[in-house]
Every structure is written in C-alpha cells, then in structure tokens.
C-alpha cells in the first residue's frame, strides 16, 4: 500500500514474508516489517519510511555516515537498515558494536558483509 498507493517506493520488498527486513518502517517509532502488516493495522499510527529521514533536502547524520563510510552497495537493504538503525539510536544513542549487530540481525544484506554498515552506525553513535 505504501509503495503502490502512496508512491513511496523507497521501502523495498525482498521476501514479503518477514524474512529479510528490506521493508522495515517505523510504526509509532517501532521498527516493523511492513510486509507483515495490513494498512488497516497502521491506521492512526505514525509511519516513518526512508523518505522521511532527510529534512529539507539535507541528509541526516546517519544517512551521511552511510554515504561517507561506504555502507551501501546495491542499496536494496539500505532503507530497511536505516530505519532499524534509526530506531536503535533513538532508543540507545550509544550502542556497542554488539548491540548494533543484534539490532540489525533481522535485516539481511548480501553485499557488504555488514562491516561498513556497522562502522557507519558506530560512527554516529560514537559522537
């Protein structure tokens, strides 16, 4: 529904059954696999997607860190990774590497080996 009716195609579909995390959005601030959710369940909730991260055309710190540290290859997992990391950093602004890896464990990435994604989140968390 978000992709087709609202035209917000930033969130991706890698599996449609809750296995990959590519579709992660924040629903009332909680990282959620949107493929597992009916639009009606989100009725009245605040939904945040990757499109909402940059403000006035300026990347936020986390996005900038992904760009600068090379946390992106094909980019298909990136929107989901960013949303999961956003939730983590709101909850826990200074996570350890372990906590970062734990938070990301539902988001699959086949390109990066996760190293640069973890580095990019760490760089923001360490500030």
């Amino acid at each position: 529904m978000v992709r087709e009716d609202l035209g917000l195609t930033g969130s991706k579909k890698g599996c449609g059954i809750g296995d990959c995390g590519a579709c992660t959005m924040l629903v009332n601030g909680v990282a959620t696999f949107s493929c597992m959710m009916l639009a009606i369940q989100a009725d009245g909730c605040v939904v945040e997607t990757v499109e909402s991260l940059a403000e006035n055309g300026k990347l936020n710190k986390l996005q900038q860190s992904f760009v600068d540290l090379g946390a992106i290859q094909c980019g298909y997992c990136t929107p989901g990774m960013l949303m999961t990391a956003t939730e983590l950093l709101r909850r826990n602004p200074h996570p350890s590497e372990k906590e970062i890896r734990l938070a990301l464990s539902g988001n699959l990435c086949r390109c990066t080996g996760y190293q640069k994604i973890v580095d990019a989140i760490k760089a923001v968390a360490g500030e």
């Binding site: 195609t9 969130s11 579909k13 760009v67 600068d68 090379g70 992106i72 980019g75 990136t78 929107p79």
Partner: peptide
Amino acid sequence: TRLPRVDAIDKVTGKAIYTDD
C-alpha cells in the same frame, strides 16, 4: 581515494529506482 559512490545519496533517501519501483 575513498570518495562516496555516485548513487549513494539516492540510495539513502529512497530515490534510487529499481525495476519494481
């Protein structure tokens, strides 16, 4: 160098268009 990839910004903002988009 370590310059960021040219498609990085599109990919962190959800602007990059994949076929299914």
